[in-house]
């Protein structure tokens, strides 16, 4: 089955670029959200939950940590990969349930490896 991903970031350019990068890798982007609150709403709306969420931290309304906690409380099988330019929250992100933390900027290969690792964990 194709791996499904939800992308969360308040920067529309980055959302666009992530989609393109993930398409190259062969992963299906099932949704995007511009802030943490929207991410929670979209996640709730999914009948079939995405396998992975690529999560930014500094966002309006609800930040990445708050959104992660809420999403995992709804479904703790989803794998959340933090992708943030703020490396100071790495420990906190892992402690609230993220499986890995990627500091911006990173390459397509790096994100691909992370997704594969996440999928192996899933299997």
């Amino acid at each position: 089955m194709i791996t499904t991903v939800l992308i969360v970031d308040d920067d529309t350019d980055i959302l666009f670029l992530y989609q393109k990068m993930l398409e190259c890798i062969g992963v299906e982007v099932v949704g995007t959200a511009l802030d943490g609150e929207e991410a929670v709403q979209i996640f709730k709306s999914f009948q079939r939950k995405p396998d992975i969420i690529l999560m930014d931290h500094r966002m309006p309304k609800k930040n990445g940590l708050e959104a992660t906690k809420e999403i995992l409380s709804i479904n703790n099988r989803v794998k959340i990969i933090f992708a943030s330019a703020d490396s100071s929250i790495e420990k906190e992100a892992l402690s609230v349930g993220a499986i890995s933390f990627k500091e911006k900027p990173f390459s397509i290969e790096k994100i691909k490896n992370n997704l594969l690792k996440a999928m192996n964990l899933n299997q």
Binding site: D13, I14, Y18, R58, A85, P105, F106, S107
Partner: peptide, 12 residues
Amino acid sequence: HDINNTLQSLYS
């Protein structure tokens, strides 16, 4: 933070 975001866009 913002420069890293910018660089992420440029890199990608």
